[in-house]
Design a protein around this nucleic acid. Sequence first.
DNA 1: TACCATGTTGATTCATTTAGTCGACAATAT
DNA 2: ATATTGTCGACTAAATGAATCAACATGGTA
Lengths: 160, 160
Amino acid sequence: MKLSTRGRYGTRALLDLALHSDESPVPLKDIARRQQISLPYLEHLVTPLVAGEIIRSIRGAHGGISLLKSPEKIRLSEVIRLLEGSIAPVECVIHPDICPRVGSCAMCDIWDEIRKAICGVLEGTTLQELVERQRQKEASRNGETLGSEGAVRAEQPKDT
Amino acid sequence: MKLSTRGRYGTRALLDLALHSDESPVPLKDIARRQQISLPYLEHLVTPLVAGEIIRSIRGAHGGISLLKSPEKIRLSEVIRLLEGSIAPVECVIHPDICPRVGSCAMCDIWDEIRKAICGVLEGTTLQELVERQRQKEASRNGETLGSEGAVRAEQPKDT
DNA sequence: TACCATGTTGATTCATTTAGTCGACAATAT
DNA sequence: ATATTGTCGACTAAATGAATCAACATGGTA
Ligand code: FES
Ligand code: FES
């Protein structure tokens, strides 16, 4: 139940793009450098986002990628689906025909509840929210350094 | 973000055990047959559950495995943790020290929300509930065959 | 006691997926 | 033209997942 680098790097790249968007396209090279992702690998991560029409790319000098939709309209669920495929934790939830037990299997219900729970979080988070959250974190981090309000460092999660 | 066979087979095996528990231990052979899991593989799935003190095993003739706790006290979260390890979708949520970005990374918050959402479902489901749900499904399935109330066949999930 | 049925453990194999690189190519600005 | 950028597919290496097997330990039963 771990996210692969596709999901992790891909969302970071998209967030980076949103943070550095100012009309002109952002070159992959810049994103790769800032996010410490190898350029050739990042190219592959970006492909499904282009195909999914979340971003568009422009080739040639001064090219790069840019958002196709405003950040408020880009939901994380859509991004993760493009990067990682179906969100369901088991196949039979989404393709009930592949499992002979569907219909008399109690576990399926639970797996589907988990799918819904994950979708709920992802659906309810937009790129815009991530941008704001990130800006705020960076600001408060700088503030910390300057000596003003820290104390945001919360407790560790109790369960894994 | 897919569950491996450990989680899928393991929970099915445990549910099967709960359904067929009547004081005497249930041989792995029987569970393997009913759940269509190869016996040598099932042995490995059962090991962490024994180590986690959810079930106990008895060797020799008429041996097998049996629950150590009553089904109402066995939460799915515990089972999945034993079978699959940490529930967190990324490492940095549970080991914040491994990622240099922790503390100024907006994504971490989201990954942790997902962890909490999954935990919520898993924590809130006991083996007892699964047993009841399963019995009910089997009953209504037989009812279906006999001609009475079907119509439980719900709609497909809209999102993946 | 001998023997059979069962669980335990670790090694090993095979297949799949993940992560990443590379090279040839296409498009665009200057 | 040429340098810069994205696109695509082939390729490799490493990690993980799935499964099997053999050797052993242990407890019932004849
Ligand atoms: S039907 Fe396949 S796990 Fe429920
Ligand atoms: S700190 Fe590693 S992903 Fe957030």
